[in-house]
Amino acid sequence: MSALTLPGPVAAYFAADMQGPEAVARCFTAQGVVKDKGQTHIGREAIKAWKAEAVTLYTCTNEPFLIEHEHGVHTVHSHVAGNFASSPIDLKFVFRLERGLVANLEITL
């Protein structure tokens, strides 16, 4: 089986996900947006706070296994397992990129 090839900013996001909130926030544009669990987080500080809260609540692994690209959007399907009620679960990470950074990320089922 061949390794999954992700666009640079998407690969950077998944790598930063293991490094912490500050690293995750740096993957986004200044006005980047994250939509997760019915909430919207706008800007690097809000994204950093979103990730900081998530790491205090959950410990998990994230293993991307499929990527689709359509209409300028990259959808990454990832197997997520950890200490949360629905674990393990496959989630979609829907990225819109801008100037080599993530402009928008929506995490869905």
Rank of each mutant, 00 (worst) to 15 (best):
H41N: 10
T5L: 14
K48E: 10
I42W: 05
Y13M: 11
G38W: 08
A54W: 06
T40I: 15
E22S: 06
H41C: 10
Y13C: 12
A30L: 14
V34E: 00
D36Y: 01
V34Y: 00
A15E: 14
Q31P: 00
D36G: 07
G32F: 02
E53H: 12
C60H: 06
Y13T: 08
A15D: 15
C60T: 05
T40D: 04
T5C: 10
A23V: 08
A12D: 14
E22Y: 02
T40L: 10
T56S: 14
A46N: 03
K37N: 13
L4G: 07
V33N: 04
A15P: 07
A3P: 03
F28S: 09
K51D: 14
R26Y: 02
C27D: 10
A12W: 00
V24S: 01
W50F: 09
A12F: 00
K35G: 06
C27N: 10
T40G: 05
A12K: 08
I47K: 00
G43F: 10
V34W: 00
T59Y: 07
V10C: 08
T5S: 10
V10K: 01
V34S: 01
K37E: 15
V55D: 15
W50V: 08
A23W: 02
R44V: 02
G20H: 04
E45L: 05
L6F: 01
T59P: 00
I47C: 03
T56H: 15
C60G: 03
T40R: 13
G38K: 11
T56P: 01
A12V: 08
W50L: 10
I42M: 13
M18I: 10
R26C: 12
E22D: 09
A52I: 11
A15Q: 12
G20K: 05
E22L: 08
A46Q: 03
Y13V: 09
T40A: 14
P21S: 07
R26I: 12
V24W: 00
D36F: 03
P7T: 02
R44H: 03
Y58K: 06
P9D: 05
P21K: 03
S2T: 08
F28L: 12
Q39M: 15
M18A: 14
I42K: 10
V55S: 11
V24K: 00
C27F: 02
T61W: 00
Q39S: 14
S2K: 05
D17E: 12
F14Y: 13
P21W: 02
H41D: 09
F28C: 11
D17A: 15
K37W: 06
R26G: 07
T40N: 04
R26S: 13
T29Q: 13
R44T: 06
G8H: 04
P21C: 05
M1F: 07
G43P: 11
Q19A: 15
V10R: 00
C60A: 05
L4I: 15
D36K: 04
Q31W: 01
A12R: 12
P7V: 05
E22N: 04
D17S: 13
T5Y: 03
A30K: 13
G38Y: 08
M18D: 11
T59G: 09
